[in-house]
């Protein structure tokens, strides 16, 4: 298969430095700038800047992965397969981090005194299901030895895995009683769910974490392609 080399030059380096600086500002701003005081939530509302962008990064990763899976089916190349796989892998990292941060946030904010780490919130449960669907993608990959066959079957499975995500993560949880905002409509744009001063940090945090996803993802793609080039001799 073709292993054409993508060059990552000065522009890439400047972007990564930019992402590092951007995220540093987001973390500081997220901890320092004042936020409205709410009962129960108190300062833990700042987790909005860290827990929620995990899901945006997951979505970004799933979209990138699905795009390369679709492109692989149109014209199979090693690079498209590698990009689909690595995007899914890094997306899963953010999904797992989102799940764990959510568990910790809930445990010490809404479930103080109950000892409940897992509360079967619809969004939490459906996310766990979605992550298992993704985990199966990697199991499927590892079970097929022939690269072209693996690429094709994995791409088809991945498109299904990504296609069910909006329903599991967004449509279904909003129909049920949940700790998460959104049952009354779109949480991101409703006035009560997000104070104006928090939007100043929240949106940059979302952009920053999606950029961080992109950085880790491209880094891993470079590594995988270098490995393949070396294996080819």
């Amino acid at each position: 298969m073709n292993t054409t080399r993508t060059r990552y030059g000065t522009g890439y380096r400047f972007l990564t430095i930019g992402i590092a600086g951007w995220m540093t500002v987001v973390i500081v701003a997220g901890l320092v700038l004042s936020i409205p005081r709410l009962n129960i939530l108190e300062e833990s509302a700042r987790n909005l800047y860290f827990h929620v962008p995990m899901w945006f990064a997951l979505m970004a990763g799933m979209i990138v992965s699905a795009v390369y899976s679709a492109r692989y089916l149109m014209k199979p190349t090693l690079e498209r397969d590698v990009r689909a796989e690595q995007a899914a892998l890094v997306a899963m990292l953010f999904g797992v981090l989102g799940l764990i941060t959510g568990m910790v946030w809930a445990r010490f904010t809404w479930y103080v005194g109950t000892g409940k780490w897992w509360n079967f919130d619809p969004k939490q449960s459906m996310t766990a299901v979605q992550l298992m669907v993704f985990a199966a993608y990697f199991v499927l990959r590892s079970s097929i030895d022939e690269p072209r066959k693996r690429g094709r079957i994995a791409a088809v499975y991945n498109l299904f895995a990504v296609a069910i995500a909006p329903f599991l993560l967004y449509v279904l949880p909003r129909q049920l009683e949940s700790l998460h905002p959104g049952g009354e409509g779109s949480p991101a744009f409703s006035q009560t769910d997000l104070a104006p001063e928090m939007r100043m940090v929240f949106y940059p945090a979302v952009i920053g974490f999606i950029a961080l996803f992109w950085w880790i993802y491209t880094q891993r793609v470079r590594l995988r392609l270098a490995e393949e080039r070396l294996a080819d001799g």
Partner: peptide, 16 residues
């Protein structure tokens, strides 16, 4: 005021 919950979340992401 539960600020350590935020610290825990940031640390989890950092470890990831």
């Amino acid at each position: 005021d539960k600020l350590y919950v935020v610290l825990a979340v940031v640390l989890i992401i950092w470890f990831g």
